[in-house]
Structures are given as C-alpha cells and as structure tokens.
Design a binder for these strands. Structure first.
Lengths: 256, 256
DNA sequence: AGTATGGTTTGACATGCATCAAGCTCGGGT
DNA sequence: ACCCGAGCTTGATGCATGTCAAACCATACT
C-alpha cells in the first residue's frame, strides 16, 4: 500500500525512467507536441539543473528576475513577507511545477522560494524562453497556459481563505496534496508532509494549533491517521463530503 | 476637490482625450513602444468594443474561452462560485485592466465577470494576440508581464485574507482603490464605491455587517466620511499606519 | 548515550467576527 | 406623492478560532 521509496526520495516514478542529458522538462511540465528538432532547441535553452538542500533559498523577493524554475524533484514553498514579521505561504510546489512566474511583472522576484527538502530544479532563462516561444508557437501557447493555471490556482486559494472554515480548509488541503501525489505516481492516501504545521497554517490562514487540533479531530473521527508528518487518508470520502459544495475547483493536479 | 464628473461617468480624464477609431488600448493597458506600423497591426486585432449595462455578465464561468477583455470604461467584479450558494469575489476591475486571463488555462472561463456599472470593454481575441505577439516581441513581453502582474496581485490578496484582520483589510482595500483612482486621474480621497457592502465583504473575506461596522468605526475615528457609497478619506495617513507592516505590496496601481 | 532544540499536542481562556434580528434610508415604480 | 424592496446600520449574543501556557516527542548535536 504505502510506497516506501516515496517518503525519502520523493522522485516520481515516471521521472526516474527518463534518462536525459539536461533535465528534460518535456515529460514534466512542458509536454507539448514538439518535433525532434524543436525539442533539441528547448533542451538548449534549459540551463543546467541546480540542486538545493533543505532550507536553501531558490530565490528571494526583490532579487532581479532572470529565470523561472521547474521543480524536478523535491518540494518547495513560496512565501510573501510583510514589513513586520508576518509571512504568508502562498503555495507549495512539487515536481513538474513552475516557480517564479510572479517575477516577470516587475523584473524582480515577488516572493521567497525555499526548498522544504533536498531538491533539484531546472533553470529556464526567461528571455530565451520568450524568443523560443516565438519560433515554436505551441511552446508559447503552453507557457501562457501555465501562467493562466497559476492564476486559476490563486483564485481557488482565495475561495478557500475567504469562504471556508478550518475543517474545510484542512480537508481541501489534504485532498489536493493527495491528488497531486497520485498524479505523480505516489500513493494517494499515504504520504509524508514536507512542511511544518506552522507552514500549513500560514498557507491556510490558520494558526498552527488549529491545524494540529483539526488533524487530531479528523483522526478521532477515523478519517485519517496522523503520526507526525506521516498522513494516511483512511476515509477520503469523508473529507470530500466535508468540502462538497464549497470547492470551486480546489481539486487541481497542479500546484497549491 | 471632488471631481463631480467622476461619480457618474467614471471615464478617466486622459482616456477622454484619445480619439481612436477602435478603442486604442495603447494608452490604456498596452503602452509598449510600438512603431506606427505595429500599432495598426494591433488595432486590427482589437475587435469592436462592447458595451454592457450594469449587472450584465461579460462572461460566465465555464463558457468557452476565446478572448480576453480590456476595460475601457466602467467597473467590473469577477467571482468564482461554489457548488452550493457561496461565491467569492476575486477582484474588482477598472479602466485599463484585463479580464479573463484565467480562461487561457482550460480554454474556458474560470470565473464570472459582471459589470457593476454601465461599462465598455475591448475584446482581444486571444489566438490573434498570440500570433501578433510572435511578430512583435515587445507586445509578447508586455502580455507576459500583464499575466504576471495578475499573479502578484493574487498573492497580495492571499496575504490580506490569510494574515490581516478586519480593520486592516478594509484600510488596505480603501487605500488600494484610492491609489487606482488617482492613477487614472480621479480624486484620490473622494470617490464613489461601485460595489455593495456585501461584495466588499465577499472580496475581503468578511460579512457585510462587519464591513459596515468597520466603516462606521473609521468614520467615528475621523479617518473617513461615509455617505452610503460616497467615501472620503479624511486622514489617509491613519489608514496607512493601520496597515504599515502588514502590507506586502497591497499598494498596486493595478487591479484588486 | 545524553542533552538541547524545535516542532507538536493539548488544555484553559480570551476575543474578533459571524449570526440573528430589528429598524432605518434611499431609490424606483405605480 | 406614496409605497415597496433592496441595501445598509446597529445592537445583542454565540461560536470558531486565536492566544497563552505547559508538557511531550523526535531529531540533531556534543
């Protein structure tokens, strides 16, 4: 049932099959119908992948924007900070997802991006992506779609923060993670949280105590099991019922 | 002090000067350095503008996506609905702002867009914008920036919904409106709200009673005056102090 | 192995906002 | 001019979540 490989390496199965010189996004986040010729053009743009250790910053708010990054393996959070101490986690990102799209607007990154475990990313220099997009329309189109998807995701987070109560938020969060894990070839109902209760709380607009209590309540209901960061969804249906009605489209395979 | 023209027509001063056959976005939301030749290409893409009456839908969630729209005059809200009754206003949009970017991702609009007063928009068929972007790199780049800007905006709304309390949200909201009005040539400290208390509440993640009460409290403090939809910021500084610290960058001239 | 440290759980209590309810104001229609 | 309904204000009350605090646990470090 539980994919033991998963919990330590977090490398999606189908990615492991890919043997590529660079870091081939084709299978990951840019699965457009490209010709052999176009693919090699794309490969040429992708700068060598970068490895980050847990806790390391991929980029920081305010830094000049040059590239977007595709997560190859690992797990990231992005957060916007305020002048006083407060910080808001704006998303968690796993393999195949793009980071840094918010930097295009001001030519500077708008948030911090931090690895929550040892990770690997591909760097995509944006100006080269732009010019390549001009040569390969389907690539350009795909890039627009990715940006649009980020906007859709943000809207569903707004719905979550604006309308839902603690239990609904947690349920939506767990189900979203579940869906994204399973899309990547991991077990849907048995996974390791990469982030702390505080980070979950920040993302969901709750305090860490509320997150903890709500998880405990779910467990008491027999809906999930919680052992520290290891979560099992025992009755995913119960969680789905909880949010039936209030989800606009919280159920995306993409980022959250 | 108060721009009386503003309250009924809501047409930015500098737009009125523009006499254009089509509806010239150049001055509005696409102020890129284009050649005369390029400009006429762009004009050719812009389909005739559309007028909407108060309450009319520009598009609905689920409708096939074909175009994005630029607000020329008027005022819009966008909202995502949930299966039960709940709806979340995700933004308010005024002249020069783009609507519908979330539709690119799924080839279907992801939210409803509704005119809050009689309005006029330019329709930009997306596929033609894409191909034009290939010919005019600066236009392509500008379009990427606009999409990125939307993502940045959404992040600051998340910060607002996730971290701030009622008074801070209202203050941030009023100051943001103020900034956007003044950018468009309207009075910064004296304006008419186009939306109801309930819509404000939905956007800010509050109930309408809380919005009402908080406005009353601001007035009692001598910070603002409220006569129905007519708001004056008497001590904008006081509002700024209230959110000093918690604003990531709530202060954008763009949408919110 | 022992100890320190950060993250987590759980409890008791406080509070900000939601909820329920009543009355008010304004604008539109007859 | 009148009435009606929608939107708004204001009050009383309740509840969900935040706050403060203590104890626990697991991992990392000496």
């Amino acid at each position: 049932m539980r994919n033991t490989m998963v919990e330590h390496t977090n490398i999606p199965i189908h990615t492991l099959k890919v043997s590529c010189s660079n870091c081939s996004l084709r299978e990951l986040c840019l699965p457009v119908g490209l010709s052999r010729e176009e693919m090699s053009q794309l490969d040429a743009v992708i700068r060598q992948s970068r490895r980050l250790k847990r806790g390391e910053y991929l980029f920081r708010a305010g830094e000049p924007f040059k590239s977007v990054f595709a997560v190859r393996t690992g797990f990231f959070k992005t957060c916007v900070g305020s002048h006083d101490g407060r910080e808001q986690v704006t998303g968690f990102h796993m393999s195949g997802e793009l980071l840094g799209l918010d930097g295009i607007s001001a030519n500077a990154h708008g948030c911090d991006s931090i690895a929550l475990e040892d990770s690997e990313v591909c760097e995509l220099p944006f100006s080269r992506m732009e010019s390549l997009g001009r040569d390969i329309p389907s690539l350009q189109h795909h890039f627009f779609r990715l940006m649009s998807r980020e906007i859709v995701r943000d809207q569903s987070v707004m719905l979550l923060l604006g309308n839902m109560k603690a239990e609904e938020r947690l349920a939506a969060f767990l189900l979203n993670l579940s869906l994204r894990f399973s899309t990547r070839g991991f077990a849907a109902n048995d996974f390791i949280l990469r982030m702390s209760r505080e980070e979950i709380g920040s993302f969901l607009g709750l305090k860490l105590e509320t997150v903890s209590r709500t998880l405990s309540r779910f467990q008491a209901n027999g809906w999930i099991t919680v052992e520290h960061k290891h979560i099992q969804l025992v009755q995913p249906t119960a969680l789905k019922e909880l949010i039936s009605g209030c989800s606009g489209n919280t159920q995306q395979t993409h980022a959250m």
